[in-house]
Structure formats: structure tokens, C-alpha cells
């Protein structure tokens, strides 16, 4: 069978504005959209630019908008997206070339929530222990691979790039609810900013887009609750 792939193209050195180009190629239903992009780059146009690395849904490099929804191209199969495929860069971030966007604002927000372990207490002889329940508390949010599918599917982020976005909050959640960490108060103060958690309008796009199936809206709800009550339950 044949698929028609319409791809967003933009080269800032030659193009005044972006345009779409369409390619037709033989496909299998189990092909991934990433395979199609590789095919186009190898057979039709070597200048097509996109990020990819592991190609197995772990590195989070190839987030893009496929048929109007954010996916990792390496996890989106032809049988799931159909034979008419439209591929665009993710929204809300500046396009550098074709499907490549500037991820700097995204990582700035990520860094702003202190996404690292903080504990100045002297460590015990062996290790900082944690019960199974305490570890399970933040298990979901440890799965984030920073692909930006969630943040760039969020209308609040499209409207205002100062908004921290779901990915930064997911990573804040991962440490705030870690019983070994001691910087929860500081992170909650950062999240309780004008463009912090309360800009989330529970639209659920992030939860739908997440390729790791993290319950992002629930995590953000737990952060709002923690700010309101002060309890890290």
C-alpha cells in the first residue's frame, strides 16, 4: 500500500515563509512515521531535517505533530495514523529548520524547577532508605523523557511561553514527592508563580500527548493541592 506524507518545510536561509511538500511512498502498516521520514530523506530529499536518536521511544528526540497530534515519530505506526499523514514541527517553539524546533525555552523552564536531588543532611553510612510506598508515590513522574510532547500540546503554553509547562511540573513533582528530598518548599514557591501551576486549566492535552503515558494532569493537580494545603501526601 501507499502512503501520502505531507511535510512542513522551512529553510530560514532560502525560504521567506514555510510551505508543505508532499511525498508518496510504499509502506507497511507496521512502519513507523520515523521510517517514512528516513525514506524521504534517503530517496527524495536529503535536505529534510528532523531530530532522531535512539528511534525506540526512549531518548525523546523526535517529538512532532502528526495529523494534528503530538507523537514521537518512532512510536507512531502507519496503522495508527492512517495513509494520509501530515507532519509538522511541535507548536509553541520557534522553528529552526523543517521539523527541528528551538528547545532552549523548554529546557530553561525545566531547569528553573530545580530538577535534581537536594538534601544537605549528612548521608547515612550506606544509603538514604525509602519504603516501597514512598518510592511508588512519585513513580509515574520518573518516566518523563523530556520529549516536550506535553508542553507543546498545551494551549496555555501556546498562548504564553512564559508558562512553565507540564514537563517542568512533572519533573518538579518527581522531586517534591520524593521523601529523601529537602527542597520541596522552594520548588513549590517556584511553581506558585504567576506563570506556574495555576495557569494549568486542566485541558488534558498533555496527558493525551505523553508517549510515556504519565498522568500529567493528575500530577499537576497534586502540585496545586500541595501548594494549597502544604501536605505532601
Amino acid at each position: 500500500m501507499e502512503a501520502t506524507v505531507k511535510i512542513f518545510r522551512f529553510n530560514p536561509e532560502t525560504d521567506q515563509k514555510p510551505h508543505f511538500e508532499t511525498y508518496t511512498m510504499p509502506v507497511e502498516s507496521t512502519d513507523r512515521v520515523l521510517d517514512l521520514l528516513e525514506y524521504i530523506k534517503g530517496n527524495f530529499d536529503g535536505t529534510l531535517s528532523f531530530r532522531r536518536s535512539c528511534a525506540h521511544g526512549i531518548c525523546g528526540s523526535d517529538a512532532m505533530r502528526i495529523n494534528g497530534r503530538n507523537y514521537l515519530a518512532c512510536k507512531a505506526l502507519v496503522k495508527d495514523v492512517g495513509l494520509k499523514i501530515k507532519v509538522e514541527p511541535v507548536l509553541g517553539l520557534k522553528v529552526i529548520k523543517d521539523l527541528i524546533v528551538d528547545m532552549d525555552p523548554f529546557f530553561e523552564h525545566f531547569r528553573s524547577v530545580m530538577p535534581y536531588f537536594v538534601n544537605d543532611e549528612p548521608p547515612p553510612a550506606k544509603e538514604r532508605l525509602q519504603t516501597i510506598e514512598e518510592r511508588e508515590r512519585f513513580d509515574d513522574t520518573t518516566k518523563c523523557i523530556l520529549c516536550a510532547c506535553c508542553t507543546t500540546s498545551c494551549p496555555s503554553f501556546w498562548a504564553n511561553q512564559e508558562y512553565l509547562g507540564p514537563a517542568a511540573m512533572v519533573n518538579a513533582h518527581r522531586f517534591i514527592f520524593d521523601s529523601r528530598d529537602r527542597a520541596a518548599a522552594e520548588r513549590l514557591r517556584i511553581l506558585n508563580d504567576q506563570f506556574g501551576v495555576f495557569r494549568c486549566h486542566t485541558i488534558f492535552n498533555c496527558t493525551i500527548a505523553c508517549p510515556r503515558e504519565i498522568e500529567i494532569t493528575q500530577a499537576i493537580g497534586e502540585l496545586k493541592n500541595a501548594i494549597s494545603t502544604g501536605a505532601l501526601e
Binding site: 519504603t131 510506598e133 514512598e134 520541596a184 518548599a185 513549590l188 502544604g230 501536605a231
Partner: peptide, 11 residues
């Protein structure tokens, strides 16, 4: 058993 931790001064 998981203990509830409380965070002060959230502003």
C-alpha cells in the same frame, strides 16, 4: 507506612 510531610511558607 508513608508519613505525610508538611511544607511551610508557600506564599
Amino acid at each position: 507506612m508513608m508519613q505525610t510531610r508538611v511544607v511551610p511558607q508557600r506564599g
